[in-house]
Design a protein around this nucleic acid. Structure first.
Lengths: 210, 210
DNA sequence: TGTACATCAGTGAACGCGCGTTCACTGATGTAC
DNA sequence: TGTACATCAGTGAACGCGCGTTCACTGATGTAC
């Protein structure tokens, strides 16, 4: 408490560094292509100052990934509770809409997550993999609750969640390079795909097989 | 024809360069981290010799991507014709199996495609995007043919194909970091997911909605 | 409240290194007469 | 068939540049008495 001023200043500088890195990734650049000096320059600092905030470049990258995971998580959590009551059809569309909003509000961070999911550093991969696993599990839980609330027979919620998340990430990637009109079209298609998945889950639950 | 020896030698050297680059990517490294000198050294050439085969590093990368696309395409084409007769249940499993085989036989190339699908160079992105689009279209065509051959009502084949490919790429990515036993488990799950998608397509075709 | 000391965010020089690309070259292969 | 010339895959030196990290430092902020 008494050391406030210095600590606060430090936290602020740390934020400036992360913001600077984020800005540099804005034009389609990947984390791997960011240089220490470049980030420092953008943040208005001497290159060596970064070492007062991150032990090395890997730690800086991990901080950026953590931030992206936080945004993903909070975007997807938004209005999650209300999903159970609105009925399956609307719930599916709103799920996709939430993901699209995240992709648009944090496009760089979305790209960061997808890129580093297969990146060179296993610390990055593990962090992202864990986050996606949580996302799948939470979605599966929501599906189970919603189905139970409607007194329907239990569906293969885990598989549905996995497929839906795969579809949405595919959507996010496809949306990166195209016009807004085409984006809407892609999002509608993805909505249909998730609906097909949910329908398929019901059939599966009823014992149907191919 | 008469200039054969020299041309043939050149083609062979070009192959050696691509092989060398492929070998260097074997330990989880990305295309972006490959250096000109490094590739040349691995290929047993002077660094500058690479310029006799590729105008710049971008062209080398594109050649690697082309090769990967070719392998993806031929892997997925393999046995494609027989899919119509075996019935939907087996066809779905074999589809996933073909993709898994590609992912295992050409793991580096699979990684290359997924990574560069969001890479910095738009030439790479376009190339890969076009290939995936073809893949989706061919799968959708197969689905339509198979459904027609069984006198079923037409399903939303394009949406099913998009969703199935998204699921399979998700599978391929998830398989990269895990044990063989876990890989089989993931592949089974993905098979279930694609089956759910196909079931959902039938419901959709019958006019069902959520 | 005033003073002496400790902490530590930020600095600038320096380290060795590999980057992609250019250039003028060498010498084997191919071509024309 | 022999000879003179053209082509061109491969070479080694050199270009300017930024990389991540280390180090000893400065000076403002915080702490203890």
């Amino acid at each position: 408490m008494s050391e406030g001023a210095r600590q606060q200043q430090k936290k602020q500088t740390r934020g400036r560094i992360l913001d600077a890195a984020g800005r540099l990734m804005a034009d389609g650049r990947g984390l791997d292509s960011l240089g220490l000096r470049e980030v420092a320059r953008e943040a208005g600092l001497a290159a060596t100052s970064l070492y007062n905030h991150f032990p090395d470049m890997e730690a800086l990258g991990l901080a950026l990934i953590d931030r992206a995971c936080f945004h993903l998580r909070s975007s997807m959590a938004e209005g999650r509770r209300s999903m159970i009551e609105v009925g399956a059809a609307r719930a599916v569309r709103e799920l996709v809409a939430r993901f699209v909003r995240f992709q648009q509000d944090y496009e760089n961070e979305f790209r960061l997550l997808v890129q580093q999911r297969l990146g060179r550093r296993s610390s990055y991969r593990r962090r992202i993999h864990g986050e996606l696993q949580l996302m799948v599990n939470e979605l599966a839980e929501d599906v189970r609750e919603a189905v139970a609330a409607q007194d329907r027979p239990p569906v293969p919620a885990q598989r549905e969640a996995e497929a839906a998340i795969a579809v949405m990430f595919g959507l996010g990637i496809a949306m990166l390079d195209v016009s807004p009109a085409r984006r809407r079209e892609l999002a509608d298609n993805a909505g249909d795909q998730v609906e097909i998945i949910a329908l398929g889950g019901r059939c599966w639950a009823a014992g149907d097989r191919l």
